[in-house]
Write a protein that binds this DNA or RNA. Structure first.
Length: 583
DNA sequence: GCCGTTTTCGGCCCGACTGTTTTCAGTCG
């Protein structure tokens, strides 16, 4: 009956599009759009916030939107939305998703040709009925057909683990071109978002056109979406969209800042600039007069570094991972930016698999691979018996494995190899080993793998059972999401956090880019509550240990300092912490 | 629709590219 955060976010975003088609003032539209985005990324259940009368304390939610949220939570419906659907066909929301079609065109097609869906639009375009409309022509009609085809191919957002290497490969090619002084991946990849819409690349050069020509001519380019002298967009053969901007080196700071975003962060930066009598764009700061018009003959301020951009608006440099307008500007102003964790802070990997269950390498091979990568200690954590499909270990085999782990540990000192397990939390809520077994291990992870779609109270209780067990040290990939498509389990995270806080149980940020679970938003909430975190690779083979940086990126997005992460600790501190926990 | 030690009303960031236009609206990021 009651709607979820995600469903409410969807409705707000649909309302924004419908209002825009209707011709509402853009700022009212943007209020709904921003509210949708905020609700989507919220690390708490709206039901819990509403119960505390805290809805209007959410940034961008005022009295009106709070009332609408309350109505949806209480009735499962929104009268305003239902009425709007009577005025503006809902199918137009999808029409606007077509590249090159915005609210004005959608309204034109609807009013002139009674088109209310993508299917109807495609039929009209193929029949040549669009070209005679005002402001349309043959080229526009063709672009719409291409846009519809691209939309059908599109599989949604791309996981960071795929996008980052793809972006790096293109950038590496660009960096080899003559005249390229500098290059960087910008956009949501640089900010470490778990999934990305398109790839944003930035290059510094004084001679942009030949570089741009080389870019749109690359082998992996399937289609050119736009091609100007300093800005181009292409669709790669694998479907990924890549945007490239080229600016002069002396503008690198403003350009990188602008192109990294987020859009919300950029808006705040530009507002701060205006307060100082400056207009900020990707090229420079320009002095403005009282009515905010650029003073043409006043000297502009160029910034070749981001540090200079931030300094010009009176702020210290802000790490890209924080640039979401989620408090980082205020923290910077108060000189209270977090001291973010870095990859170099990580001392250990507490979650990995071997040939004993579904890993591809031996205990010794995994230990040597971790040592090569600079880790100082690891925990071997194979699957427990309930995960039969992953060759999970019976209690007997688990203790057999312990002998092997002890041998490798003795051989490799001072590098340490501890013996743990990734124990299933069974569907009925029980744990997969009795306490007598758990007490013999150095470290215990408990994870959900099965029955992830159980109803909220049932699946939440499973996790609580694990957190409350004094032998369980860490909850692995707590919400069970798989990017980009598998939704997390319907856990009551307020209850999970409260229990973890009470029992001192750690929560994992699983670094595998398919997981990144906890997400940054939840990680941020966890550290605010003083809950310890661990960043682990869950490696099933040595090369997967190289994915650790994705977990660190996610932690940084969650404002996590090193001290909150147990595997940044020296081994003695780690041992002491586990001993305090009932073994 | 939100928001406020400059405001409870009147603001709310900025530019590149495209296709259709004879100077610009629409779209996108």
């Amino acid at each position: 009956m009651s709607l979820t955060n995600r469903e409410i976010a969807d409705i707000f975003e649909q309302i924004a599009v419908m209002l825009e088609i209707k011709g509402e003032i853009i700022h009212r539209v943007l209020s709904y759009r921003r509210a949708g985005e905020t609700v989507r990324d919220l690390p708490r259940d709206l039901r819990a916030i509403a119960a505390e009368n805290g809805l209007t304390e959410i940034d961008g939610i005022g009295k009106t939107l709070a009332e609408k949220i309350t109505e949806m939570l209480e009735t499962g419906k929104l009268e305003f939305y239902e009425r709007l659907k009577g005025e503006i066909p809902l199918g137009l929301v999808d029409v606007v998703r077509i590249n090159g079609v915005g609210p004005k065109k959608a309204k034109l097609f609807w009013k002139e040709l009674n088109i209310t869906s993508v299917t109807e639009l495609e039929a009209a375009a193929r029949a040549g009925k669009l070209r005679d409309l005002a402001g349309m022509g043959e080229k526009s009609e063709k672009k719409i057909i291409e846009g519809i085809e691209a939309l059908a191919r599109q599989t949604g957002r791309t996981p960071l683990g795929i996008a980052l290497p793809a972006a790096q490969a293109i950038l590496d090619q660009l960096l080899k071109l003559p005249g390229v002084v500098e290059g960087a991946i910008a956009g949501s990849i640089r900010r470490g978002r778990p999934t990305i819409g398109d790839v944003d690349l930035l290059v510094a050069s004084d001679d942009a056109e030949p570089i741009m020509q080389a870019f749109v001519s690359m082998d992996q380019v399937g289609r050119i979406l736009g091609h100007g002298p300093t800005k181009s967009s292409v669709e790669l053969l694998n479907g990924l969209q890549v945007d490239l901007r080229i600016l002069a080196k002396e503008r690198w700071g403003t350009a990188l800042n602008y192109f990294t975003g987020s859009q919300a962060h950029n808006i705040r930066m530009r507002e701060l600039a205006l307060e100082k009598g400056l207009s900020l764009n990707e090229h420079a700061f320009s002095p403005v007069d009282a009515s905010k018009n650029i003073i043409e003959d006043a000297p502009k301020i160029l910034c070749n570094t981001e540090e200079k951009v931030y300094a010009t608006v009176g702020l210290p440099w802000i790490a890209p991972e924080l640039r979401e307008d989620s408090g980082e500007i205020e923290a910077a102003q108060a000189e209270k930016l977090p001291n973010l964790i870095t990859l170099a802070d990580i001392q250990a990997d507490l979650h990995m698999h071997t040939l004993w269950s579904d890993g591809r390498n031996s205990v010794r091979e995994m230990a040597e691979a971790a040592l090569e990568r600079g880790r100082r200690y690891i925990v071997i954590t194979d699957h427990s018996q309930y995960s039969a499909i992953a060759n999970g270990l019976s209690a007997e085999r688990l203790l057999e494995q312990q002998e092997e782990v002890r041998l490798v540990d003795a051989d490799m000192r001072p590098f340490r190899v501890f013996h743990g397990v990734e124990m299933d939390i069974r569907s009925d809520g029980s744990l997969d080993y009795p306490d007598e077994v758990l007490v013999q291990l150095d470290f215990v992870i408990a994870s959900l793998h099965m029955s992830l779609r159980q109803e909220r109270s049932v699946i939440t209780q499973r996790v609580l059972n694990a957190i409350q067990n004094p032998h369980v040290d860490l909850i692995g990939h707590p919400r069970g999401q798989l990017l980009p498509d598998r939704e997390p389990a319907d856990l009551d995270m307020d209850a999970v956090f409260a229990a973890a806080q009470k029992h001192g149980t750690a929560l994992e940020i699983n670094a595998n880019p398919r997981r990144l679970d906890l997400s940054a938003e939840y990680a941020r909430r966890a550290i605010e509550l003083g809950i310890p975190l661990a960043i682990d690779t869950d490696a099933h083979a040595p090369e997967q240990m190289d994915l650790l940086h994705f977990g660190v990126l996610t932690a940084r997005r969650g404002w996590v300092p090193a001290a909150s992460v147990i595997n940044t600790w020296p081994v003695e501190q780690f041992i002491e912490w586990t001993k305090k926990r009932g073994r």
